[in-house]
């Protein structure tokens, strides 16, 4: 029975190597007469000693005065220090984790995330079903074009072309998965890609409707931003877990940390740099069918009065935002004194 287990890992060197410590004292260093030899040029020739004190407790003694040893984040001196297992030591670039041989093992990591959604989407029939839904919605939403004189062959062909987007996207993410997980997982990649395309198409249909019902560009923009801030990290995290072994929570945090600042940055840029001159007005010209706004029309008089007020406010804000206040143009007298 080993006294101690050492998990030795070096940055960028793949999974940890495991060593048994059968007897104490046990020396660690770069030199050839150590019990554990480390091929790491930041480790001293005689770097570390593991031994027992008079009470039989496990202690560690740093013998390196070059790069030294860190216990957690604390540098070790020459004085022996008692250890509680498990414990991490850092010697130069090398990390050594000291573990009790009787410690319980973590369960084996699943090859693929076992979330029910991932398992469901990983099935080929589901992927094909999603693809069929995409094809169907594309046909439905471009149906007016057929009515308005587009030949049916072109209409059908356009919908078929839409399908190539998720197919290609899935090929790319599948290839990444092949590199990282040694498996293509193509049905899963296809499902995710199709759902992304569906979400994009959905927002294309949804946003003009929001725009139409709210008749306010600002509100529609805000909703659009919130949708993006929600959907992009979710899909990105899902995609990360599907091509790598990363845990879902961690993937979500990484995705959010990348996407949200980017969105915020884009918004800030628009706010501070994007106020450029536009020779045309920001018209709200979306029309929808069927139309539910019919009951909310106002009579001409109140429409004119409220429009008048809104325009005066808008024009005043435009002037205030772009020019320093014009000095008192109220004075009616512009005739010369004589």
């Amino acid at each position: 029975m080993a006294l101690l287990i050492l998990e030795i890992s070096q940055r960028g060197q793949g999974p940890a190597r495991v060593e048994r410590v059968e007897r104490l004292p046990f020396t660690i260093g770069r030199g050839y007469n150590n019990d554990l030899m480390l091929a790491d040029d930041t480790v001293s020739e005689r770097h570390l000693l593991l031994t027992q004190d008079e009470d039989g407790r496990l202690v560690v003694v740093n013998r390196s005065n070059e790069n030294g040893t860190l216990l957690g984040s604390r540098p070790l001196g020459e004085r022996p220090i008692a250890l509680q297992l498990p414990q991490s030591l850092r010697l130069g670039h090398t990390q050594i984790r000291l573990v009790d041989p009787q410690a319980a093992m973590a369960p084996a990591r699943k090859l693929v995330s076992d979330h029910w959604l991932t398992r469901l989407c990983g099935r080929l029939p589901v992927a094909l079903l999603l693809l069929a839904i995409l094809f169907g919605t594309e046909l439905w939403f471009t149906l007016p074009k057929l009515d308005n004189g587009m030949p049916w062959q072109r209409w059908l062909l356009a919908a078929v072309f839409t399908l190539t987007v998720p197919l290609l996207l899935a090929a790319i993410t599948g290839f990444v998965s092949r590199l990282l997980l040694h498996r293509w997982h193509y049905p899963l990649q296809l499902s995710i890609a199709t759902l992304i395309v569906l979400a994009l198409g959905g927002s294309e249909v949804l946003l003009p409707r929001i725009d139409y019902f709210l008749t306010s560009t600002g509100t529609a923009e805000l909703i659009q931003l919130l949708l993006l801030a929600l959907l992009i990290p979710l899909f990105a995290a899902w995609q990360i877990t599907a091509v790598s072994a990363m845990a879902g929570k961690r993937a979500l945090i990484i995705a959010a940390c990348v996407v949200l600042p980017l969105l915020a940055l884009g918004k800030l840029k628009d706010r501070f740099i994007g106020s450029e001159f536009d020779s045309q007005p920001p018209l709200n010209t979306t029309l929808v069918w069927p139309d539910w706004r019919l009951q909310q029309t106002e009579p001409l008089d109140s429409f004119l009065a409220r429009t008048h007020r809104e325009l005066e406010n808008g024009v005043r804000e435009t002037l205030e935002a772009t020019t320093p206040l014009i000095e008192s143009s109220e004075e009616p007298n512009h005739e010369p004194p004589n």
């Binding site: 008749t215 007005p281 018209l283 029309t297 106002e298 009579p299």
Partner: peptide
């Protein structure tokens, strides 16, 4: 300066 717009729904001769 840039245009600002007012977007409303109005009844004209009984039609929206």
């Amino acid at each position: 300066g840039n245009f600002s717009c007012s977007v409303r729904f109005v009844d004209i001769g009984g039609k929206p």
